[in-house]
């Protein structure tokens, strides 16, 4: 494994581009996470405490409970797609820029472990 001093980690942390990457990434990730957790826990909470609402029939015999459970699949896939897009368009490029700049050229020549 690489020894810590091959790359000047402190310099990366101080770099405004890194700080901007981290700020945007954190806000995005934790925001999506909060949405997902809140949306998911509405399901057991609804199934337990709002049964009258969950029993309302919407489409033939299909009720709110079933539609809400199915919507969780849509939510999960939507978050996966939104995050992947954002990451591959934005975060990956910024990270690659920083990596290219800060990677110690000498460290590349050494055989890896």
């Amino acid at each position: 494994m690489a020894t810590p001093n091959e790359v000047d980690w402190d310099a990366i942390i101080r770099d405004p581009r890194f700080q901007s990457l981290h700020r945007r990434k954190s806000a995005f990730l934790w925001g999506l996470m909060a949405i997902a957790v809140a949306y998911y826990f509405l399901l057991p909470i609804g199934a337990a405490y709002f049964q009258d609402l969950f029993k309302i029939r919407v489409w033939g015999v299909i009720n709110v409970a079933l539609l809400f459970a199915l919507s969780q699949f849509v939510m999960a896939w939507a978050i996966a797609i939104i995050y992947s897009r954002k990451a591959s368009q934005d975060f990956d490029r910024m990270a690659a820029e920083l990596s290219a700049e800060f990677a110690n050229p000498n460290s590349q020549a050494r055989p890896g472990v």
């Binding site: 690489a2 402190d10 990366i12 942390i13 890194f18 990596s99 890896g112």
Partner: peptide, 15 residues
């Protein structure tokens, strides 16, 4: 700082 920079940039992973 190393953990923080590494996990966000992926530096040295290929190694």
């Amino acid at each position: 700082n190393e953990v923080y920079a590494r996990q966000n940039t992926g530096l040295l992973v290929s190694k």
